[in-house]
Design a protein around this nucleic acid. Structure first.
Lengths: 153, 153
DNA sequence: TGTAATCGTTCAGAGTTGTAATCGTTCTGG
DNA sequence: CCAGAACGATTACAACTCTGAACGATTACA
């Protein structure tokens, strides 16, 4: 909305956040990945062996949506589905060698993205911003490393 | 993604921004409005008499999409389409009395939303956050009061 | 043993978004 | 003054994504 003078922090947050997400999406598209795929890959790397339903619960996403994301990552050999030996209903999701390499490239893209976004801030200001945002995130019940809106950057 | 320790400012921005947008959407839904409608209403109030195509250009949105938004606002009597006298191809979009009242309610909701989001920050910290975000927004070419991603909160 | 619950998957339906064609109006050039 | 191009708004259409229910396979429990 264009009515507030000056705009509240919430509007600025939403606007800059959407811009950051869009720019990040453009960067990872060069790796033939979408932000949700990146989020899922990172989550699998952080806690391997999880079932799809467990991941869907963590991400707040319907399990039917996870199928396509996992399919895309598995087709490219970035993750693999292993049947759980004691409960063959479950899949254990694990990251592969190639997935780990991809993750390194993603991390590099993320740092470049971060630098581009915050280039108008010096190191101390960036740390201040990070601290303030972290405080809000914790207060608002956002789990670290998990993007709300299921797009999970 | 859940791979960075600590997460970069960009990821935090995207996550908190998405959360802020979602919460704002929930609040305005109590007024039977969607965020895009709110953004458009505010824009019309800020610069009345604009044509639909001009607004579509400002918002970075296809004109065909604006039709539905304007229809929804016009059906509820919040805005009105007036034919331009010198060029009857154009509509002039104006806000109505009821639209102005609605805008006051929206502003109140916005302030409540802002307070809820930043409740863990004191006044000085909020101002610091606003200043840092404004700097990034200006540097990144975001026009003030206009939400990228066309959702225009 | 058999019934209910769980996991992953698939499918159909709804909702959204962008592109292209349509209609009325206005501007341009002879 | 008239014919055709240009322009704004609208509508129609197609592509895409997400949600929710249903299904087969497997397991847990009574």
């Amino acid at each position: 909305m264009a009515l507030e003078n000056p705009p509240g922090s919430a509007f600025l947050l939403a606007a800059v956040g959407a811009h950051a997400a869009a720019r990040f999406a453009a960067r990872v598209s060069a790796l033939d990945l979408t932000p949700p795929q990146v989020g899922l890959l990172g989550l699998i790397a952080a806690s391997p062996g999880q079932s799809q339903q467990a991941l869907a619960g963590v991400l707040g996403m319907p399990p039917s949506r996870l199928v396509g994301l996992v399919d895309a990552l598995a087709d490219r050999g970035l993750v693999e589905r292993r049947r759980n030996r004691t409960d063959r209903r479950l899949y254990e999701l694990h990251i592969t060698e190639e997935g780990t390499e991809m993750l390194a490239r993603i991390a590099k893209v993320g740092r470049e993205h971060d630098d581009a976004l915050c280039r108008s801030l010096d190191a101390a200001e960036r740390e201040t911003l990070r601290a303030l945002l972290s405080r809000i995130a914790a207060d608002q019940g956002l789990r670290p490393g998990i993007h709300p809106g299921y797009r999970s950057v």
